[in-house]
Design a protein around this nucleic acid. Structure first.
Lengths: 329, 329
DNA sequence: TTGTACGCGTTATCAA
DNA sequence: TTGATAACGCGTACAA
């Protein structure tokens, strides 16, 4: 490897001079030219580790994501990438494969890398998670789940549930089926659902059935093949767009038509909802903006500025073709 | 920051002893216990930079991707993540936003980080790219595009095109429309297309029209709204699954039914092709395996082992509902 | 088993 | 403007 020493020797100057050239640039024209030439010749590149070691700063931000193949995650990630780049931070993205053990590991790894801050996409939040984060001295930000004592940035999931509930009632529906996910995920499994339930429960003559699945399309599809023929619901609320896409698929397979036989909606606002037929009514979440904001917030944390414990991102009902007025049958 | 020196002082031993404990572990029971306790108390974590600086090894692999929101990219990435984890490498993922300048930047950045090897998802490959890579002393691997002088791992795109061509001919089709992408992307824009063209051209009474779009769904959708009413083709070949999904969407919008009015196929084998109706015939690419193999190959490069310049990944025709026999109209 | 001393590549301080 | 030197945190000969 070619080091600053090599450059100095070949240029016939002290390495401190080369260093000065590299940073301030305040050197004489003559030596500057000489150094520039040697650097070009040798293809020298400063060693970031030595630099970080000295400067006690890495300019790196660590990100922990649950999986690499999620549309929403990637949107947020894209926002994180953009903003951190603007701010001169280098990103280290680690994947936990939806496994808590690996989440702990990744927190450790990133701490050892001496990243200046960590952003973690939270799924379920156990006491061990909180503990692991507190151990770390590194500024920390959770995305997606509200956490005690630790800063977080979340969606208004309860409100999103309310929006769908209100909208469905307005359409005249009274018989609902909610396809949810496990409650370990508080944001999606509890709040989103509760917002919906609290809203529709307020009405009269309402029936609400509930089914639980996971975040994968395939599970939702399999389950839908079973429950669709049995349900009396005229409006099916899916906890995510992926689930909605899968249920729609199963509906067609079984010969139902949406929204004639029942209305159907999701949450998220993924691109996929716009490229199926009918297009799916959903609540659009500002994923990219969330990524931008999360970096802003983390950087404030790094700089020890005051920031609110929880930041909430607003969302928006998007009405598409998959929902329509209740028709008496 | 708590360093190995602090631990040593508090434990009343030399830092070399602590270091030995950290690495070999060969210390007396007594000191071991003492050190362990102090480390637990202080939450000490070794500084990876100092470590890398000393060891001249970072155990990091750099990855350059064109964008964060691509299904195929993420599948490959997932494979890369899995294998590099198994092999004890830490991943640094950087995003180039489909911009050549940023690709060069990222190559630089990763080199400075002293990653041991770089995997880059290639889009278009210019002489500047080749030059930038050669500048770097870092072992380098291109994914997705064949490159002179530089190691690469690619799909059998030409063969994939052949498969679709052969299949379409067998179904009795004679009038084709190929929806392609710019030729800057040699793999998809040239080879995939050429494999198809060379195959169907061999027959008689064939007509082939060609349209060019980009990789986004929205562009393909907009264009499809225009060309679908005009085309006489009975089989539409889309260069990617995303394009196929968009064309299918436009077809429905316009009142056509697939495959009754025309057959339609894509390339890639994305999950999305299975969750639309009709499901889309495609060629399934082994993205995840490609990720695994690319790490294997890069590691061999790092260890200066002999490896073939180009590795090819096989693919497979997947027949779904969007294609059927040609029916005389 | 333990401790001393040095070097990894860089930057910062201070004197020349 | 330049150069000598110390320091960042760690690992490792080598000596004790």
């Amino acid at each position: 490897m070619v080091t600053i020493n090599d450059i100095a020797r070949k240029a016939g100057v002290a390495k401190s001079t080369v260093s000065r050239y590299l940073n301030n640039g305040s050197v004489s024209r003559e030596t500057r030219n000489k150094i520039e030439e040697i650097i070009r010749e040798t293809g020298y590149m400063p060693n970031n580790f030595a630099r970080s070691l000295k400067a006690q700063k890495t300019n790196m931000i660590g990100v922990i994501i649950p999986r690499l193949s999620s549309a929403s995650t990637n949107e947020v990630l894209s926002g994180i990438d953009e903003r951190s780049r603007q701010l001169g931070y280098q990103l280290i993205i680690t994947n936990s494969d939806q496994d808590s053990e690996r989440e702990f590991e990744n927190i450790q790894t990133l701490s050892k890398q001496k990243v200046e801050g960590i952003i973690m996409f939270a799924r379920e939040l156990t006491p061990e998670h909180i503990e692991a984060v507190k151990q770390t001295q590194t500024p920390f930000l959770f995305i997606g789940q509200r956490a005690e004592d630790i800063h977080s940035i979340i969606h208004q999931d309860y409100e999103a549930g309310e929006k769908i509930g209100k909208y469905a009632l307005e359409l005249g529906h009274r018989h609902f089926l909610f396809i949810g996910v496990p409650e370990k995920d508080r944001a999606v499994g509890v709040e989103r659902k509760q917002g919906f339930l609290d809203t529709v429960r307020a009405g009269h003559g309402i029936t609400i059935d509930t089914i639980e699945t996971d975040f994968s399309r395939s599970s939702a599809y399999q389950k839908a093949l079973k429950f669709l023929p049995e349900t009396l619901a005229t409006y099916i609320v899916c906890a995510t767009d992926n689930i909605a896409v899968a249920v729609l698929k199963a509906s067609k397979e079984l010969g139902y038509s949406v929204p004639e036989d029942f209305s159907l909606s999701g949450f998220g606002g993924y691109e996929a909802t716009a490229y199926v037929s009918p297009t799916i009514t959903t609540v659009s979440y500002p994923y990219r903006e969330m990524g931008l904001e999360s970096v802003d917030k983390l950087v404030k944390l790094i700089n020890k500025e005051e920031v609110p414990h929880v930041s909430e991102m607003k969302n928006e009902l998007v009405i598409n073709q998959s929902t329509t007025f209740f028709k008496k049958v």
